[in-house]
Amino acid sequence: MESGTLIYEDRMAKKKAEAKVETSGAAAPPDRMALLTSMLLQRRFEERCAEAYALGRIGGFCHLYIGQEACGTGAISVLRDDDYVITTYRDHGQALARGMSPRAAMAELFGRIDGCARGRGGSMHFFDRNTNFLGGHGIVGGHVPLATGVGFAIKYRGGDQVCLCFMGESVVNTGAFHEALNMAGLWKLPVIYVIENNRYGMGTALERASAIHDIYQRGAAYDMPRGVVDGQDVLAVREKVAEAVHRARTESLPTLLEVRTYRFMGHSMSDAVSGTYRSKAELEEYMKRDPIMVLRMRMQAAGEIDDDGMAKLDADVKAIVQDAWEFADASAEPPVESLYEDVYVDSTT
């Protein structure tokens, strides 16, 4: 398909003009301190989520990202402001990495009016138009066609944005995944499908669910560039995603990237950390490669941070999270009169 010559102007086009243009596939030298800060913020934020959940401040399904922070952080760090991010219900970490305010995130979890979806979405449905964060989606596989559609829209408008689509490894067994990636391969759409392979979908190990175990090889079915990377190493993730983003921007090609990681918590807050499907020993083994630790040790070895610096950073981050908590706590519940708002938008017809 040829990109058309369309007069349609995207609201993000303005931002695009200001955004930096990448000239090569190599990622710009990473701001390692920024990556560390972002991951630490996500970690401390979600530790408080667990606390709030236990206190009944947060309800419903709540899936934590703890252990997987390097995946979203590394991937999102190479995006421009006008690019798009879409993901699953395990969305807190990625939303924060994308720049959502911790206040809006915590207020959403508390079901308050100042939440990023005005208290209508909750943990699984974070949305943020300001950062082109296209949501947290709760039907396994359901958002993957949406990402393909975003890629279609980018190509339709003749833009050079990309769409980053995160998903768990269980998604690759759904029809929606297959249908969406086939079209992206067929039409050459600028979408990067990032599979966070944390080895389990709830309690079902990958090997008990997928006919092939090297998930990235699924890309072969769609003639799609593909690869696999260590998901505990934020710099490695960043490098790989940068290549894919470059390919998407300059050649309008999709990529399927498998990021191998592990979740340190239960599937959701209502699930034990280890249990029938995985052992404590296995968990402890994986926890030795905590993504925050991995980066910190590397920075420490390079003299970029020391124990004092780390303690200071941690205190700063904790203060941000505390502020978010207090903000959420003080935020009002959505007025009951607003119940019927936003079912339909007032239309021009």
Binding site: L134, P145, T148, G149, F152, N182
Partner: peptide
């Protein structure tokens, strides 16, 4: 005017995704 594969779930979602960003 776009022909799709036989992929109802997929192209319905492609439509929704494209509508999220302005088409």
């Amino acid at each position: 005017i776009v022909d799709t594969p036989i992929t109802e779930l997929g192209f319905a979602g492609v439509g929704v995704g494209s509508a999220m960003v302005g088409l």
